Structure formats: C-alpha cells, structure tokens
Simulated scan of single mutants.
Amino acid sequence: MSIAVNEKLVTWIEEKVKSEYADDISLALLYGSFVNGTANSRSDIDCYFIPRTERGYRLAGTFMIAGVGYDIFPMDWERVRNIANLEEGLLPLVGDVKVLYSSSEEDLGRFRGLQVQMKDNLADKQKSQTAARKRAESAYKLYQDMCKPNPLVEIRKLAGHIIMQLADAAAIYNNDYFHCGLKMQFQDLLKLQKEKDIPIRICEEYLHTVQAKTAEESIRHSYGMLCTVGEYIGVSFSEDLSKDHAESGETTEVKDSALLAGLYEEISSTFNKIYVCCETNNYILAYLSAVCLQRELDDAHREYGSEKYDILSFYEWDDLQKMNLAVKAAEDHLVRFIVGSGGVIKRYSTFEEFQRSAWAW
C-alpha cells in the first residue's frame, strides 16, 4: 500500500517545489529505502531539502498517510558540508541520494562537489582515521555513562548506541560507510570483515551485544567491542572523556501538544519498522530500531511531559513478541496522551485525502 502512496507523494513534492518554492529551495533530495531498493509495505519516503530563503523552510512538515509517518525536513548547506567532511553521521544523506529537484546548475554543481569532497575525505587516510577515532571516543563517553547505576532499559539503549558508533568507526577507518544505514549495518560489517580483514571479534561482540539477555552481558560485550575497535584503529581510552558529556537533566514537562504530535508523526515510521522486524524475526534491526525509538520516547518524556515508556526491557532476541506488545502499548498510550492534551495528529486514510487537506500547504 505505502509503495503506491510513496510514488504519488514523491511526484507531489516535486510538483510542489517547482510550482510554489522554485525560488526558495536549492535542492530536494530522496534517500533511504525508497532509493536503495529496500522498502517494504510500511516504508516511508526519506526526503530533505536545502532552503535558499527563509520562506523555503515552510515546505517542512510531518504527517501520516495510511498509517505511515512522513517527515519532510530541511538541512542547510553548512550541515551538508559537515556531513561531507565526516564531522557528522548520516553519510548516506550525501552519498546515496536521488536529486528530486534542483533550482539551478550552480546549486546542483555545488552539491555534486560536496559528494566528491566526501568521497575524497573517505579516501584520505588521515581524515578517515581521524573521523573514525572521534566516533570511537564518542562511544567511550557512552560507555562511561553506562557504567553508572542504570536500569536495564538505559543500559540497553546506551549499548546499542555504542555498537552503532563503533561499527561506523570501523567502516570509516576503512574508507567506507554503511550505504543502507542501520537496516544492513551488521550484514555490511560482516562484508567489511571479509573484504578488509578487520578483527572478527568486532562482529562477534556486536552480535553478542544485540543478543545480550542481562545488563551485565550488555556491558561486557559492548566493552569488548569498544576495546577491539580501539585497538584496531589506535585509540586509547585511558583519558576521562566524560567531563564534556552533558547530562540529560530532569523532566521539564513542557506540555506542547502540537510539537509532541509532530514528533509522533515523525517517529511513527520507527514504530512501523519495529513491527515489521518483529513479524519477520529480524532481531538485529528490531534491537537497533528500538534503541533509536527509546531515545525519542525518553526525549518526549523529558521535553513534553509524556509518560516514561520502557520498551527495551522487553527485548529478547529470540522472542520479539514481548517487545512488540510493549511497543504497541507505548504507541497507543502516546497517541491518547497527545489527543487528550489537545494535540492534533495529521492523519489521512489515503493520499487523495492528504492532497485535499488544508494543511497540505
């Protein structure tokens, strides 16, 4: 169902930009499963644009069609350049995109130049190794947080982010990155191990972390991957790196139902990703997606006063249905909280209903 909707929505975005934002947007770009061929029946489209003017930012929006959430968002040239310089993650957003619209040959050439720049930076031994080591150091900061007294949900969340960062570090150290993002990260890490002969223990500790049943196992195996990657890329973790790591703080309970509704529209695709993973028994992506969703739910609790949901405590790699039920319960409760607080979730049954809506710009 969503594949047909996605094709219509891509055409709609392209026509919208050309007819109403031609002077306000430099580029509109697609990335992710719609572009790389890994989409399923519940996949969204991943789309961002580079504004030229303040008015261009008005194209941004979140909404849901037929139960699938969409997020059309802006990124300025500076952030795209940071990605090309390996200073941020999200490398597929520069390296693996389809240009949907370009306002001029100059803007298109500027973006193509950043793609070449990113490729050159990856090929540059010093730059790629520096970027890899920074990611490993970020993982070490997370490990230090994980060693504090924490409940299982927090330990699993931190462990997940640690292994994702370390996998990125191993790939970038070898002048590459994960072109399909988290969806194929472990499979691509295994390919990297065979092609570049990285230590097999990196892959083993990654998998053991995903399969960990207890907090102690999560800590032990994520630390094992940390040490192995550190030794491989030449990073020492003796220095106290936690001093610059900001604490998340207490709940502020700023109940802005409109912003929370927008957040839900944005992250509903992650809910769907977990449901598909549970149906297909893809426990690795189920874990990684749950780690990302847990972080978003924690942020929603802290910033908007929603309930503090716990989904990762229910994760078991060999029995995903427990977490599936917990995720569904969290989603249902979050929707009730938003609606009960006066929020309006922009949900449409069909693409045609979305197209007719007053909100559709």
Rank of each mutant, 00 (worst) to 15 (best):
G113P: 02
L114W: 03
L114Q: 13
L114I: 09
Q115H: 02
V116L: 13
V116H: 13
Q117H: 14
Q117R: 14
M118A: 08
M118G: 09
K119Y: 07
K119T: 09
D120A: 08
D120R: 13
D120V: 08
N121W: 02
L122S: 07
A123N: 10
A123S: 11
D124R: 00
K125M: 07
K125V: 03
Q126T: 15
Q126V: 14
S128N: 12
S128P: 11
Q129R: 11
Q129S: 14
Q129Y: 09
Q129I: 09
A131E: 04
A131L: 03
R133V: 12
R133I: 11
K134A: 10
R135Q: 13
R135D: 09
R135A: 05
A136P: 08
A136M: 07
E137K: 09
E137A: 07
S138V: 05
A139I: 04
Y140T: 06
Y140M: 08
K141N: 11
L142S: 10
Y143T: 07
Y143C: 02
Y143L: 05
Q144F: 15
Q144T: 15
Q144E: 12
Q144M: 15
Q144R: 10
D145T: 10
D145I: 08
D145N: 14
D145Y: 13
M146P: 04
M146W: 11
M146H: 07
C147Y: 13
C147E: 13
K148R: 11
P149Q: 00
N150F: 07
N150D: 09
N150I: 09
N150L: 06
N150S: 14
N150E: 07
N150G: 12
P151T: 12
P151A: 13
E154K: 11
E154W: 14
I155R: 13
I155D: 11
R156I: 07
R156C: 03
R156A: 03
K157E: 14
K157P: 15
K157S: 15
L158Y: 11
L158R: 09
L158E: 04
A159E: 01
A159H: 02
G160F: 00
G160L: 00
H161V: 09
H161P: 14
I162N: 01
I162T: 05
I162E: 00
I162Q: 02
I162L: 04
I162H: 05
I162D: 01
I163S: 05
I163T: 03
I163C: 06
M164F: 01
M164V: 13
Q165S: 10
Q165I: 05
L166R: 01
A167Q: 03
A167L: 03
D168L: 02
D168N: 12
D168M: 03
A169E: 04
A169M: 08
A170S: 05
A171D: 02
A171H: 02
A171Y: 00
A171M: 02
A171F: 00
I172R: 00
I172S: 00
I172N: 01
Y173P: 01
Y173A: 02
Y173R: 11
Y173C: 01
Y173D: 03
N174S: 06
N174C: 08
N174K: 05
D176F: 00
Y177T: 01
Y177N: 03
